[in-house]
Design a protein around this nucleic acid. Structure first.
Length: 922
RNA sequence: GCCCGGGUGGUGGAACUGGUAGACACGCAGGACUUAAAAUCCUGUGGUCAUUGCGACCGUGCGGGUUCGAUUCCCGCCCCGGGUACCA
């Protein structure tokens, strides 16, 4: 029998969907809306591999399902088109990144089209397109002209801040800002414009500041914290140094608490929420001021989460960069301190981390005074205290903090036990379970109560207060690169101003080279006339990769709008994303920033919601399965895996596309490279068996499998079903085509239900039997339940069971097969469309409505009860479901097989769960 | 170290609220059709013992516990994967 002609069918329907704009979505629709979004890809030169579509297939199935269920579904796709790889390529080859990007997008589009996705391509966005980045720049301008008012707990226009300054200076303002001195309204009114702007800059949500940044010399740019992994750049793996630079930052810290609280009202996976919670890192405690011995005018402020342990303080530690170090270090220790600061200051991020376990520090010769006991507390400096967190200084309590403990042990400093319950001769006792001892007025209190008591006391005597700290840092927002959004900013002197909104977009200028200038300025400094009409110089930094992705989900709603980033009408209709699917690697980058921008735009009243996505699902990674060949060291001979231990060999990766089930295609291998053409092989069982390993799917490991190849061989519907059938969406798994044959067979079997032996379309108009209805309705119920909880793998099994059962009955009943075609349309849209058309329908299956399951076809009269004795399953007994408990017991005790297992005993208890199980306890 | 996720047949996995463990599929074995192969179809397939039949026992990483009943809940441990890293 001929197999079903998937190549013609798939091409035919893809063409028709595109020509008829089948998936075009209107903003003007009376149906309820549903927004299904994929994280848009960065179009790399390598193209898509089979791992990329996993999430796209899942979201497409869901979008198609929701459409059949009567929703108006927004399901768009676009490209995160600015980024480093295209630019690195430009530096190497001189080809403009716009061209590289355009080519790559073309390739991506072809590959996506090949899989039959139901995207509305009229809504495509590209972050590198001026009509898109015009609005990225516009949002930046809004950030620049906003400040965060703690009193209203939201962002406000900077004009409200200026009004406040004019009335009362900044004495009455509660803002999230950089550190600032207090000034009065009189002070403010006396200031010139430059002074005023300098102060306002400290309040803006987009601001310039001189900070310690992650500098990557090889990439020639600064990186954000989440772009640095283990001291190396995430892209390229280059070393990262710490460097002091003036940089644009976004004041995401203003939103720390709201970003944390917002997690409770969205349906994101627990691990994703945890990752964000940890990254935000809220800790509640107190700041306490200590006087410095011999410096009555100086006090040092420390942050602690354990104010209860204040009587256990035996020394203090400052970060080496702490501004007070220089002022308090005594003559005797000056040289040693200077040397320590030098050594630690010059180390790269990588060295510092590698050395994290080594304990180092230096005594300054200075002492702090304990506020309650008056004791002199030695002040040390050490790398383990970070300048950027809290106040950059800690009160060290070695008995109850493991880092302080190790430090004290190393430098032979005393420890005082103040919370009972541990053994501080062995290790620090960090538990909250215990009572305070050796602690004056808090003796005998529990930890929590002691904390409150200490905070109350320090607030009373004015030496400290309750404080909350966040680990989250403001996000550095500039890159010294070409291929990104230009800042809509110019400078008068050192002060930044934004260009007029009417002058947007500020187009990325042409440059003669994509390298930094000789004086080390970013590439934009090469552009001719990179200045305003009035001759003021424009900013030469560009925005980082995550700028566009922080709001792109809004643009899809209204992608062609030239007067607004999104119209009120569109955003009020579509609201936020209902289901967002993407990789978990974006937990602390994109997914935090997009939440931040959403909250910001909400504060300004531009959008009616403050979370971008109600529900988020992270698809697992499809890993590569690499293959290896083993070459003898001295000669051009390759030895099969099982025999390689007998020889001295060098393993090397071999292209997985010429390996089938670990068996190497020797002829193709010989053609791979000239030096292989005369290679010799030592085989086992006449075959060359390759070694294998699971690695990331990457060109570098020759283990990339292109979806186009799978589609060519088995079809798009097969690939879609197979990727879903592999296992739960969230789970990572290595790619293997081992089970794909099962899906191929399934689709053939489905096709045959609608055809006779001669492969002619043939269905019957007779009424369905009870049994056929039962199979159909059970499947409708199962599949829709599975889809609602995104259990795609089990929905595929349900289809297989259904088709197997209908095939056993030789069912060719039109009404059954018609509903079945609709059911499977989300998963395998091409074959479903074809069958739908053959069934005599016009207008396409995506306009059909999803069948409803009916209880009447599923209700059973009897049930085959599994009967256990003491929990061990022994027999199965069929019984009517209408029986009462008593009738079941009576009926049971009459049966021979039951009596046999009773072994003459009388049952202590008989547990009956109707329709489930019977357990007889003897 | 800390925080998540996970350990189920030869393999991918199923079992949704504590109720028949191993659905579905791959692989393997045997058979039918065929000159042959492919395709298709049928049968079997967790382990051990018994196989003349019934069957019996063990079994969801390991050790305990709760329960009539535990892959599912609780306590302790081991291993694998991911995130994070001196955050006071």
């Amino acid at each position: 029998m001929a197999e079903y002609p998937f190549r013609e069918i798939e091409k035919k329907w893809q063409k028709r969907w595109s020509e008829e704009k089948t998936f075009h979505v209107s903003n003007d629709d009376s149906r309820p809306k549903y927004y299904v979004l994929d994280m848009f890809p960065y179009p790399s030169g390598a193209g898509l591999h089979v791992g990329h579509p996993l999430g796209y297939i899942a979201s497409d199935i869901y979008a198609r399902y929701k459409r059949l269920k009567g929703y108006n579904v927004l399901h768009p796709m676009g490209y995160d088109a600015f980024g480093l790889p295209a630019e690195q390529y430009a530096i190497q080859t001189g080809q403009h990144p716009a061209i590289t990007t355009e080519n790559n997008i073309g390739r991506y589009r072809e590959q996506l089209d090949n899989l039959g996705f139901s995207f509305d391509w009229d809504r495509e966005v590209r972050t590198s397109d001026p009509s898109f980045y015009k609005w990225t720049q516009w949002i930046f301008i809004q950030l620049f002209h906003s400040w965060y008012n703690r009193k209203s707990d939201k962002a406000e226009n900077i004009s409200t801040l200026i009004t406040a300054f004019e009335l009362n200076g900044n004495t009455d303002v509660d803002a999230v800002s950089s550190p600032l001195k207090k000034f009065t309204s009189a002070d403010w009114l006396k200031m010139n414009d430059e002074e005023k702007q300098t102060i306002l800059l400290q309040y803006r949500l987009a601001y310039l500041s001189e900070t310690l940044v992650n500098w990557c010399p090889q990439l020639g740019t600064v990186l954000a914290n989440e772009e640095v992994k283990d001291g190396f750049s995430e892209r390229g793996g280059f070393a990262v140094l710490r460097k002091q630079m003036t940089q644009w930052s976004l004041r995401i810290t203003a939103y720390a608490d709201r970003l944390l609280k917002g997690l409770d009202k969205i349906e994101w996976s627990e691990s994703m929420q945890d990752a964000q919670r940890n990254w935000i890192g809220k800790s509640v405690g107190a700041t306490i001021n200590f006087q410095i011995d011999g410096h009555p005018d100086k006090k040092v402020s420390i942050f602690t989460t354990r104010p209860d342990t204040i009587f256990g303080v035996t020394f203090m530690t400052f970060a080496p960069e702490h501004e007070m170090v220089d002022k308090i270090t005594t003559m005797k220790f000056r040289d040693a301190v200077k040397k320590y600061i030098e050594i630690t200051g010059n180390r790269s991020e990588r060295e510092r981390m590698a050395d994290a376990k080594r304990i180092s520090g230096q005594f300054t010769g200075a002492y702090a005074i304990h506020p309650f006991t008056g004791a002199k507390i030695p002040i040390w400096i050490s790398e383990y205290v970070l300048a950027g967190y809290g106040t950059g200084a800690v009160m060290a309590v070695p008995a109850h903090d493991s880092r302080d403990y190790l430090f004290a042990e190393h430098f032979d400093l005393p420890r005082i036990e103040v919370v009972s319950g541990g053994d501080i001769s062995k290790e620090a006792f960090e538990s909250y379970e215990g009572k305070l001892i050796n602690s004056d007025f808090i003796n005998g209190l529990k930890v929590k109560d002691a904390q409150h008591a200490v905070i109350k006391k320090i607030e009373e005597i004015g030496i400290g207060k309750a404080t909350t700290n966040f680990r989250l840092r403001d996000a550095i927002f500039g890159r010294q690169r070409y291929w990104g959004e230009p800042f809509p900013v110019y400078y008068i002197g050192k002060l930044p101003y934004t260009i007029k909104e009417s002058e947007l977009p500020l187009l990325l200028p042409e440059v003669d080279s994509f390298q930094p200038t000789e004086s080390g300025e970013p590439p934009l400094a090469r552009a001719k006339k990179w200045q305003t009409n009035d001759g003021y110089p424009l900013e030469t930094n560009t925005m980082p990769g995550w700028a566009g992705s922080s709001w792109y989900f809004l643009r899809y709603m209204d992608p062609k709008n030239e007067t607004e980033f999104v119209s009120k009408k569109a955003v009020n209709y579509w609201q936020n994303v209902d289901l967002y699917i993407g990789g978990s690697e974006h937990a602390t980058g994109h997914l935090l920033y997009v939440r931040f921008w959403t909250k910001f735009l909400y504060d300004l009243g531009y959008i009616p919601f403050d979370e971008p996505a109600k529900k988020l699902v992270n698809q697992g990674m499809i890993q590569g399965r690499s293959n290896f060949v083993y070459k003898l060291k001295t000669v051009n001979t390759f030895v099969s895996l099982g025999l390689k231990n007998k020889y001295d060999t060098i393993p090397s990766h071999v292209d997985v596309n010429i390996v089938d089930d670990d068996v190497l295609d020797i002829e193709k291998f010989k053609l791979l490279r000239p030096e292989y053409s005369n290679a010799e092989f030592i085989l086992e069982d006449d075959k060359y068996i390759c070694g294998h390993e699971v690695e990331k799917m990457s060109k570098r490991w020759s283990n990339v499998v292109n979806p186009d190849d799978v589609v060519e061989k088995s079809g798009a519907d097969t690939l879609r079903l197979y990727e879903m059938f592999l296992g739960p969406l969230e789970q990572s798994k290595p790619w293997s085509t081992h089970g794909i044959e099962g899906v191929v067979k399934f689709l053939r079997k489905l096709w045959r239900l609608y055809h006779n032996e001669k492969d002619q379309f043939f269905v019957s108009d007779r009424e369905p039997t009870k049994e056929e209805n039962k199979i159909l309705h059970r499947t409708i119920k199962k599949v829709s339940d599975d889809l609602e909880r995104l259990s795609f793998n089990t929905s595929v099994s349900a289809f297989m069971i259904c088709v197997n059962e209908l095939a056993d009955l030789k069912c060719n009943c039109r009404s059954i097969l018609s509903d079945l075609a609709i059911l499977i349309a989300p998963h395998a849209p091409h074959i479903a469309e074809e069958l739908w058309e053959k069934l005599g329908n016009n207008g396409g299956i995506s306009k059909a409505s999803y069948p409803e399951w009916k209880q009447e076809f599923l209700t059973e009269n009897t049930f085959e009860y599994p009967v256990s004795f003491n929990g061990k399953l022994r027999v199965k007994i069929e019984m009517p479901l209408s029986l009462s408990r008593e009738e079941i017991v009576t009926s049971l005790l009459e049966r021979a097989e039951i009596i046999k297992y009773m072994d003459g005993k009388s049952p202590k208890n008989i547990i009956i769960v109707p329709g489930r199980i019977i357990n007889i306890v003897l």
